[in-house]
Design a protein around this nucleic acid. Structure first.
Lengths: 342, 342
DNA sequence: TTGAAAGCGCTAACAC
DNA sequence: GTGTTAGCGCTTTCAA
């Protein structure tokens, strides 16, 4: 690899002059700058970021720590963040945790060793103590999920409200036996969504049954499938289901499709998220739309500003909460009716 | 940040002893090692990769250069590569080009400045000369698409064969008016797929019409929509369509859904790729399944081996071609019939 | 078994 | 306007 020293030798200059010329320092004559730049281009010189970092320059890499890039939410986040970051001169390092705290720790260790400028993280439900410690030394912000040990800076959804609306939509249609399939309550998002569901039922004075609540691993399509199968086999089967996770929705909806269950005649369904094809599915899936793109973009913009500002300047508590909204399609109708009510 | 020097001071040792202890050098006594390790853990020491790199250690970062992470193919690739890489001690840097050669060059410059160990790239159709130059100094491998200027190491699909089969499937069903919607012919994949389509028609002695071929930007869902609309308005409208790009398929299929076109009665369709929901769509979308996961995994494994082997050892030409296969569902039937033939 | 010192590529303080 | 030099954190001789 070509170094400043090589350039200096070639041009019979000192390394510092070359360095200054490349940095467009005002003290260097225009003529010298041109010579240096030409030689650099010709010899294929590329600055060494590692060396620059050792001189105290901060890295231009931001780590993105997410459970699994295959989840559509996280794809959107990765893309949006990447766009914002690149525009501001940052690069994005991808780190998948697979929702496992040990993997999460390992990934954070790697990012710390690379001295990344900052970390955007969708944390696992109970991050490892060492992860917490590591993150204390690195600017970071939590996204979607939130764990108190990781600080107070967070961008996310109003999960409780989203599920409350979704459930409320079914209550309005006249359903009294409404089931919920979603992620575990240990996770901040899972707990909030479950609470929204419960609250909506409470508000309407509807019965709540433990066997109408099916919690499972949030990124498991299988759980959606299995949960739905179990719910439909119940002696007191529900007439409607609300979903609380994208992957569960994919599984549930596919199960209904395969099982030939008539939606919304036999069962009303409100999905979670906007996977491609939810609109094609059966009668069209009524679903909770979430402004993931917007959240990711604002998180990215806020974070790069925070990174480039003086430390201690912008590190107060910060939380941004965005609401979701129900998109009405054909998968919800009053119970026992044969036509969807729009 | 804690450095080896800090540890050395704390323990009244020299930096070199500390360094050796951390590297588990045999010359250091077990007792000293333990002391050092304990202090390191306690003080939260994390080695500085930048410094290590300056000493000649190679980076453990691999750049992944793709057009757009939102494309399901590239999500799969990112996930699979990330898994393989992490298992081998590498990190993945995400770089999106948006299918623009200038952006591609900028991203490559960043990766080169970071002195990444290697680059996995899905190139744009005509990479910039400087990109070519940069890549000459960095181990790299092409994925899916292939451009001759970027070397001879490539993992990809048998695009020609895939489209030949897909088209052949329609020919067998008795179609004689088969249209094609796909990416531009400048791109290696686009050219191959188009050729497969043409070849299949030639083999069957079927007519080829220029207005039955709709080429457009490969990651534009809109192109799929528009192309389909145009095809259906043709005086000599085709009775079947083959798709040659995932995003086009998404657009086309959604257009058919919205337009209420009866598939396969009025039009037979063979999609490209396996987006979630292709099985729910209308009568179920017959589609070309492509072993992206497998390709990405083998590319990853091969590449890390190449990275860790001596340079000059494994850098001969290499190409791995994987076949696709048609998945039969309900969207294809003989022309003019009212029931799908399975 | 441990320490001292050099040097990786770059920048910035300090000459001239 | 340009050169000299020191030092970032680490590894690796070379000494002891």
């Amino acid at each position: 690899m070509v170094t400043t020293k090589d350039l200096a030798e070639r041009l019979q200059l000192s390394v510092s002059t070359v360095g200054r010329a490349l940095a467009d320092d005002r003290r260097i004559s225009e003529q010298t700058k041109v010579r240096v730049r030409e030689a650099a281009a010709e010899m294929g010189y590329v600055g060494n970021l590692a060396a620059r970092m050792m001189r105290g320059a901060s890295s231009n890499v931001v780590g993105l720590v997410i459970p699994d890039i295959r989840n559509s939410f996280f794809v959107t986040i990765a893309h949006e963040l990447s766009s914002v970051m690149v525009a501001q001169g940052y690069q994005l390092m991808l780190a998948e945790t697979n929702d496992d705290r040990t993997t999460e720790l390992r990934q954070l260790r790697e990012l710390a060793a690379s001295r990344v400028a900052g970390i955007v993280i969708v944390p696992t439900s109970r991050p490892h103590g060492d992860s917490v410690k590591l993150l204390q030394g690195i600017p970071h912000v939590q996204l979607l999920r939130k764990h108190p040990s990781l600080g107070t800076q967070w961008f996310g959804l109003d999960d409780r409200q989203a599920l409350r609306e979704a459930t409320g939509h079914l209550v309005e249609r006249g359903h009294t036996r409404i089931a919920y399939v979603g992620g575990p309550a240990e996770r901040s998002t899972g707990a909030q969504r479950l609470e929204g569901y419960h609250q909506s039922l409470r508000d309407a004075g509807l019965p709540q049954r433990a066997d109408w609540v099916e919690l499972g691993p949030p990124s498991s399509v299988e759980h959606g499938r299995d949960a739905l199968r179990r719910l439909l086999e119940l002696p007191q089967a529900p007439t409607a289901v609300v979903l609380g996770a994208v992957q569960h929705t994919v599984g549930a909806v596919d199960e209904l499709f395969r099982g030939g269950v008539k939606v919304p005649q036999e069962l009303s369904v409100v999905g979670f998220g906007d996977e491609t094809g939810f609109s094609w599915w059966g009668p069209g899936l009524t679903t909770i739309h979430l402004p993931i793109r917007e959240i990711a973009a604002s998180c990215g913009l806020w974070f790069v500003r925070r990174l480039s500002s003086r430390p201690g300047d912008d590190d107060g508590a910060f939380a941004s909460v965005s609401p979701g909204s129900v998109v009405f399609r054909g998968s919800t109708a009053p119970p026992g009716r044969s036509r969807p009510a729009r």
